[in-house]
Nucleic acid binder design. Structure first.
Lengths: 203, 203
DNA sequence: CTTGTGTGTTGACAATGTCAACATCTCCTC
DNA sequence: GAGGAGATGTTGACATTGTCAACACACAAG
């Protein structure tokens, strides 16, 4: 079913090829990993010629950047939908982070991991910063003596856990605990992520 | 300068092509990132024909896996060279982790990040497990009530911080603090990584 | 010296990213 | 409406890449 169908009733213009390409690419990313994504196959899936994508993206990297940006927008929405009760906002956001990585491992690896140059893709940069701003807002206003470092530490922990999960570095039962959210709960309990009022005893 | 030089005094056999290829690949990885590494360019650098690598590695992925395995062995050596005084062993290992990521960002991304299939590269799997075993040994024997989760949390934090650094997700001054090791010190102080005796107040 | 096995080379093929030239559609202006 | 202009899609071409097959050279064992 990957052969080219003429489809005579299809108009010359695709309608929203840009969107279709992003969707096709996202699909390919989850199937084969970000590295194996090919412009031409995305075009095939979208039902256009191998060069049509160049009318919407100047380069392969630009297409990947667009997909990554879309991912960051999704992540931000997830953050905003979460973060309800102020007391365990931090934990909730962490759960959302891990849940996102588990649900879209390929996308997660594209967004981080694969060395996309943010400088040359302002849209991506913007989307990423928007997502992280939500995170920062929710984590900064705690009573910690050095809130910046505390927030960064929490971010690093959750970020690292997500990476470990995505890269299959955890054994089976840990993986399941991570998926259910229990693992992060336990870790948060140990290191005072959910109850950081006790944690500020610093030299 | 990419044309083939006859180089009459060079013998037919390279001597240790396998090693030379790994070295050339490591160089390319740091220069262009793991995704852009090409078998043929590695061969060019090593001064052999484009197909010579296939006598030592069945596939491109196998070469990358060999480089990654070498990276894990380096990391393990760094771990073992560190981890001196038992009290702040955990912090020292974390510093080593971050230092490694900073020193070889491309290699770090190859070892994690780029979805190398460990199942099909037993050498890589072995090297990775060996490195992590050192980490586990040093972090497990603490007085925490759930040492497994505590160790995992610490690992996740350091791993995440390394990723954030490698992916340039931190601004300039934070990056510098991370490079000097101060950042991790501060975070460890906040979350009780270096003094975990107080942190075990868990249901 | 012969011979065989490991190591390197040459040649070929399909797939890919990208450029250039051409075709067709859509819409704005008269 | 007519017509041209700019946007969108297509065809063709090229260099590069991973990989396979066939061949060539080297060195050690007999």
């Amino acid at each position: 079913m990957s052969t080219h169908k003429p489809e005579p009733n299809k108009p010359f213009h695709h309608g929203d090829l840009r969107h279709a390409l992003i969707e096709a690419t996202a699909e390919l990313i989850e199937r084969d990993g970000p590295a194996s994504v090919s412009l031409r196959e995305a075009a095939r899936i979208a039902g256009v010629s191998h060069n049509a994508p160049y009318r919407h993206f100047p380069t392969r990297e630009a297409l990947l950047a667009a997909v990554a940006a879309h991912g960051f927008r999704q992540l931000r929405l997830a953050f905003e939908a979460s973060a309800v009760t102020p007391e365990n906002r931090m934990l909730a956001l962490g759960q959302e982070y891990v849940r996102f990585a588990l649900a879209h491992p390929g996308l997660f690896r594209l967004m981080f991991g694969s060395g996309l140059d943010r400088q040359s893709h302002p849209d991506l940069e913007q989307a990423a910063q928007d997502a992280f701003r939500v995170l920062q807002h929710a984590t900064l206003d705690r009573g910690s003596p050095s809130p910046r470092d505390a927030a960064l530490g929490a971010w690093a922990l959750v970020h690292g856990l997500s990476h470990l999960i995505v890269d299959n570095q955890l054994n089976q039962d840990l993986q399941e605990d991570a998926a259910s959210g229990r693992l992060l709960e336990r870790i948060a309990a140990i290191y005072g992520l959910s109850t950081p009022r006790e944690a500020g005893s610093v030299p």
